[in-house]
Amino acid sequence: MAKKKRLKDLNFLEKIYLPEISKGLVQTFKKMFQPRFTMEYPEVKFEPPDSYRGRPVLVQEENGEERCVACGLCSRVCPALAIEIQAGETEREKERYPERFEINMIRCIFCGLCEEVCPEEAIIMSKDYELVFSNREDALYGKDKLLVPINELQDRINFLRKHK
């Protein structure tokens, strides 16, 4: 078997390891006094950038009505089949509204396709990342949990308009 040639042969000091080891030790020793990156989570909250895709929410207009017209495109495009919508008829100008709008947060993969496909800018990926539930039923987020006033989502909406 042909012996593989090294790119560069080690010199004597490198061969006896000790200087290299002490270099490594010095490096780690320096590290001990450098600032920490850890974020102490429950006390210190992470403030995500506008591009962050957190929990999908429904936009609630200033008059308290939802923007969603229950077209079902988010439900259709959702690769994880997380969204279930039952449409209904209203007297408002847009005849259609979601009687029931449920996102199964166990299924949701936060891909943001629902947000991308939405023709009404009605479903938005919020900055909310605190999703805890202890049973499958709690993970079904209905309209009560999904509707978020529009002024809380303005950052993301501006971001989408700029980059979409």
Partner: peptide, 13 residues
């Protein structure tokens, strides 16, 4: 603790 410091972490606290 020391492992945390070496790795720029905080360690058990």
């Amino acid at each position: 603790k020391i492992s945390a410091w070496v790795q720029d972490r905080i360690g058990p606290n």
